[in-house]
Design a protein around this nucleic acid. Structure first.
Lengths: 229, 229
DNA sequence: CACTGTAAATATACAGTGTTTATTTACTCT
DNA sequence: AGAGTAAATAAACACTGTATATTTACAGTG
């Protein structure tokens, strides 16, 4: 047997490969990702995968983009779930959703923000649209608060000139916003990421009865330092 | 030829293996670490390594402990280089040394705090002594400031009961300190790690002409929020 | 000095990986 | 009906970590 008839083939093999990849990542961890193992489970041969992804890194890139999209969805949902005009409540909702998503999908989180794949480096330009979108919820709220005059700070270290250009690309996919807002969003992100990444790597003991009090403390610090009311 | 005479052997092969490992990590990145490649460079066979490390993970663990030690050295040096009794200056010195070490040895930083080795998970109990020591400089200064009455805050989320025990072990290697001081040290650590890990993974554009102004901003925020004077 | 036991290296082999090449087949279009 | 194309397989290559058996260099002892 060389090639099964279409009826016995898996429809939408491209999607099936990604699904199987996620399944195996969830079960055996990100670094155990193996093309041959995926092929085995799908009952195809390994080189068949090359019809859908030029190499393993391309598959990883596709997974990362999917992860960013899922992550971004949860951020945007959290923002839009808050009714009324309390944008500080929205900021908090986004922050909680961030940690929640990371704890629900620790492997995906590490896939995006860590470097768990041997020799893999993400191709910036391919990933950027979904990456920018995933942080757009945070940026949009900081920007709204700034426009409403609720941003406490007015000056901030500026990004190096040669990088301001990449901010422009960022805006294209992450939504327009003032440079100040984007910078504040980034420092908020760095704080949130600091806690979450240490938690996920098991380097932080859980503070509070549910392990989330340290995080709430930090959410509060952020609100107090950067915003009024 | 089966076994070279001693004169032609490499003295202290255990150290030589680690050195070669670091060399290759620096050159080709952490995930490319390969026992066979190390053996090739040392002109021995791969199984010979097993006389010194039971498996690849044991070698990685040894590397991690060395990295923690080097990192801890730089932290302690930075603390002790500040003369006089200005402990806030010491805190800043430690913070700057943190970022500096990470940028000088990005692969070591990722080796310690990321998860760049396929399938590897650090054995907590083996690594803890050097890990605890590496943060002891920060803890000691926070504790000094607390004793001097310069700690602004007096309450903080408490660590889950079942984890307070691990804090006790921590004290054994990281120096005695109040639980409050250790908790404050941890949140400071999480903020610093947040920025540095994003910087190293190339996920943050450089703020300021030298790329360090965002970090200075954060150092300032920490000092202002947690300490007086 | 000869002998023996041990420790450290090699040689070989196994199962796994990503990837390349050539080949075969199923399906589509003219 | 026949030709062309796309998608799969088969086989092979160069790697990887690791286990086993074997060989050898050296240290210690009678």
């Amino acid at each position: 047997m060389v090639r099964p008839v279409k009826k016995k083939q898996i429809p939408n093999l491209q999607e099936a490969i990604k699904e199987t990849a996620w399944k195996q990542i969830a079960e055996f961890g990100t670094p155990a990702l193996s093309l041959r193992a995926i092929a085995r489970e799908l009952k195809i041969t390994a080189p068949a995968i090359y019809n859908y992804f030029p190499d393993r890194d391309a598959l990883v890139t596709a997974l990362i983009i999917d992860a960013y999209t899922s992550f971004g969805d949860s951020q945007i949902e959290a923002r839009d779930a808050v009714k009324g005009d309390n944008d500080l409540a929205r900021l908090l909702a986004i922050g909680l959703a961030y940690r929640n998503w990371a704890h629900t999908h620790p492997q995906r989180y590490q896939l995006i923000f860590g470097t768990p794949i041997p020799g893999y480096e993400a191709p910036k330009m391919e990933v950027l649209p979904s990456a920018a979108r995933s942080l757009s919820a945070l940026v949009s709220i900081v920007e709204k608060l700034r426009v409403a005059g609720k941003l406490k700070i007015t000056t901030f270290p500026r990004v190096k000139k040669e990088y301001q250009e990449s901010f422009e690309i960022w805006k294209k996919y992450g939504g327009d916003a003032d440079l100040l807002s984007m910078s504040v969003a980034m420092i908020i992100w760095s704080r949130v990421h600091g806690i979450v990444s240490l938690e996920i790597a098991n380097n932080l003991p859980p503070f509070g009865s549910n392990g989330d009090e340290l995080y709430m403390y930090e959410m509060n610090s952020i609100a107090k330092q950067f915003f009024t009311e």
